[in-house]
Each structure stands twice: as C-alpha cells, then as structure tokens.
C-alpha cells in the first residue's frame, strides 16, 4: 500500500470543505455545538476522531503540528496521532508549544500561554455539558435554545450541599460570552482560566457525537459558580519533582509497590524546557 493512495491529511477535499463550513459556523456562534457529518476514521471513536478531523481540515503543508495527550508529547495516543499526520500529510512536527501552528490536545491546555495565529484543537468525548443531567438530545438542544440552564446550577448546588464544594474536577462547565453553556472537554478545571480571552483559536471536535464547537480568539469564557462559592482552579499541592515548578499541573506517579509517589509536570515540553534552563526539583538526577 502506498500513502499516495490518500489525499493530503487523509480526508478528501469535499469532506474538508464540509468540516471548514462547520468550523466557520462554530466560530461565528461561540460555544454553540454545530452538527457535522463525522466520518469513519482509521482510529476508533473516542480516541480523537473529532480532533483528527478538525486538524485535518485546518492543516496546510506549511503548518507545524504538535500533538499532546495528558499534556505529554510522548504518550501513546499522541504518538499515534502525530505519526498519522506525518504519514498522511508530511507536515513538520514539533514538541515545542511556541513553535507549533496547530496543537491537537487531549485533556490539557499547554502551560505556556498561546499566541495569536495558533490553533488549539481539542478532542471531545461528550460535547453536551447537560448530558448527565438530561440524557435526551432533543431535550438538551431545547434547553440550549431557550437558555434553560437552571438545572446546571442545581447540580452545582447539590455538590456544595453534599461536599461543601463543587465536586467536578474536570470537564468543568463554562459559559461562553454570556450565552451558551459549554463543555471544555475533560481538561482539569485547573486549565479552565486559560480558555478565557485566549489569543489562539480554540476548536473542539467530537467525532462519535458529530459535533464541532469553537472559541474565537479573545472570547469571554466564565466557569460556572456561585457568588459566594467562586470557581477555584486547583491542582496537587506539590512542586514538580523534576523542574521544581510550583504553578504547573502535576501528574502523580507511583514509584514502588509501597505506594511511594512523585509529582511531575504533566506538560512534558514545559518541564523539559525548564530543566534545560537549569531549574531543578526534589528528585532531579543532579539533586538526588
């Protein structure tokens, strides 16, 4: 089999056109879920087919692509998707956040602030923020249409009544430009503030559910909360054990069967850059 059998970035141009129309509509109505005719892709549903289709529709031969999963460039699914685009489009790839023109991500927003001209593509499993309050699509679409979001706040109220705080740690719902309630994909709520007023274009693709939505640059994105229980971005109360950073989102790694743990930046490019700049953590090779 030869790769020339496929069009640039796998999808044919008609499909890309359909995707671009959906993307433009999504950008014109921020936070609104635009239905699109999702295609069968050569990876399974739930593994980023939505993100891959959005990336394929945006990719040009001069782009530089970065793919992360859980913040890391070297996780298996990130490697797989990056290879897929290398193979089908031949574009340049990079791990450096600042150098990338398109970043496809699953579950994280890079630590380094994005800049104008960059596109962040999110893989989305369940695009509907109201889905777990109301399973029926016909009803949730009506709730969005009529801005009936009282139920969403009932959920937050119940969390506080039960746990003393909102017990949603990821996929924390946001309101976009005072209109649509949106699921930011399963990013930790630590990342929610980065959604707001970002200079980059943020695109969200849900392949299995056939939905695309978007945040154009400099969009106002507010995490839902109560006046007296304001939203708080949270993370593990540690510094990175490799680069010492105290403000980045951390992964917990179990290091032996006694349950010993270490904490490391989930954003591998960010951590490696800091280490190269001489920052050290508790378990850095030199420090140990």
């Amino acid at each position: 089999m030869t790769d020339q059998a496929y069009n640039f970035a796998y999808l044919d141009e008609q499909t890309k056109r359909m995707l671009r129309r959906a993307l433009l509509k999504a950008l014109a109505v921020p936070g609104y879920q635009v239905p699109f005719a999702s295609r069968e892709m050569p990876m399974p549903y739930g593994w980023g087919t939505g993100g891959v289709q959005v990336t394929a529709a945006c990719l040009t031969p001069v782009d530089r692509l970065k793919v992360i999963d859980q913040g890391a460039d070297d996780t298996t699914n990130a490697v797989s998707i990056r290879r897929f685009f290398q193979r089908t489009s031949g574009v340049a790839v990079t791990e450096a956040t600042a150098e990338a023109t398109i970043i496809q991500t699953r579950h994280r927003i890079p630590e380094q602030p994005l800049s104008e001209g960059q596109i962040l593509v999110y893989q989305v499993p369940i695009p509907e923020p109201l889905r777990f309050l109301e399973p029926r699509e016909t009803e949730t679409r009506k709730m969005h249409e009529l801005e009936e979001y009282g139920l969403m706040h009932v959920k937050l109220y119940e969390d506080i009544a039960r746990h003393g705080e909102v017990s949603t740690a990821y996929a924390y719902p946001v309101k976009v430009e005072g209109r649509y309630v949106m699921d930011p994909s399963p990013i930790p709520k630590f990342d929610n503030p980065k959604l707001n007023d970002s200079p980059a274009i943020q695109l969200f693709g849900a392949g299995r559910e056939c939905r695309i939505y978007a945040l154009p640059p400099f969009t106002k994105v507010v995490s839902l909360d109560f006046d007296d229980h304001p939203f708080q971005a949270s993370k593990a109360e540690h510094n990175c054990d490799l680069c010492g950073c105290g403000t980045s989102y951390l992964d917990e790694v179990i290091t032996d069967d006694q349950g010993s743990r270490m904490f490391v930046c989930s954003d591998t490019d960010f951590c490696a850059t800091r280490q190269a700049e001489g920052h050290r953590g508790r378990l850095s090779p030199e420090a140990a």
Binding site: M1, M41, P42, M43, P44, T76, N77, R83, F84
Partner: peptide, 11 residues
Amino acid sequence: FDYTHRLLDFA
C-alpha cells in the same frame, strides 16, 4: 490494535 491506524494492509 490500539495505536494501529485502521488502514487496510494490502500486503
């Protein structure tokens, strides 16, 4: 199969 690309392998 997880990270295979689902491309028919004509080989």
